[in-house]
Design a protein around this nucleic acid. Structure first.
Length: 197
DNA sequence: AGCGTGATCTTT
DNA sequence: AAGATCACGCTG
């Protein structure tokens, strides 16, 4: 399948949240080994008026990559143990991004199992911290883009509207009313959400 | 349901 | 300098 170019990312963040579903995230390892995962869950974060977004009060050392070009990877360290992967969207000032919350393993599953220390397929990448571990993504990936030879997205047929679920975002306290989480309905690799109180 | 974990940001 | 807050995952 074809690689996705810059124009793919240059649409409103909430549209991109759905368009990313079904697409294949690829990481090439030394030795021409490929890791592939199908994106099955995303969350949108928008700089303006979204108090759950890291950038809602402006640029800081941590969030500066959110102000970069669409298609850049924003990776940050969370809860003392996990790296979380976002794909930057929107023009600079808007500071939007999509959190990649879950993928379905497609290729390189042996490597992923080793990374995760377990082999249950539906547990390998069914959460934002799990998938970065499976793909060996850490802070060194922060600021890299998806247009090189190591990281890129491959096109795939769009997921029909009837197959897309919507909900509030997981694990946040502010702006909980915004239904900006998108996922593929009934897909077993979608994260198991902690029920909100 | 509870807790480890450590960077980041806000408030003194 | 100190305290609060986490875009989480694991155990039980």
């Amino acid at each position: 399948m074809e690689r996705l170019e810059n124009q793919f990312y240059e649409i409103p963040t909430l549209e991109l949240a759905e368009k990313l579903l079904g697409k294949i995230f690829v990481r090439m390892l030394p030795g021409n080994i490929a890791l592939r995962g199908r994106i099955v869950e995303t969350e949108a974060y928008l700089g303006l008026h979204d108090e759950a977004c890291h950038a809602w009060r402006g640029m800081t050392p941590r969030n500066r990559i959110m102000f970069h070009a669409p298609g850049t990877m924003y990776v940050y360290f969370s809860y003392g143990s996990h790296y979380l992967l976002n794909i930057v969207s929107e023009p600079q000032e808007s500071a939007g991004a999509l959190l990649i919350r879950a993928m379905e393993p497609v290729e390189g599953i042996g490597f992923m199992e080793k990374q995760r220390g377990q082999s249950k397929l539906t547990s390998l990448m069914s959460g934002p911290g799990k998938l970065t571990k499976a793909l060996a993504i850490d802070k060194s990936c922060n600021g890299r883009d998806l247009f090189g030879e190591e990281f890129f997205l491959e096109d795939a047929p769009p997921v029909p509207e009837s197959m897309i679920g919507t909900s509030a975002r997981v694990g946040i306290s502010r702006s909980r009313e915004l239904p900006w989480r998108k996922f593929i309905l009934h897909n077993p690799h979608v994260s198991k959400v902690r029920l909100p109180e």
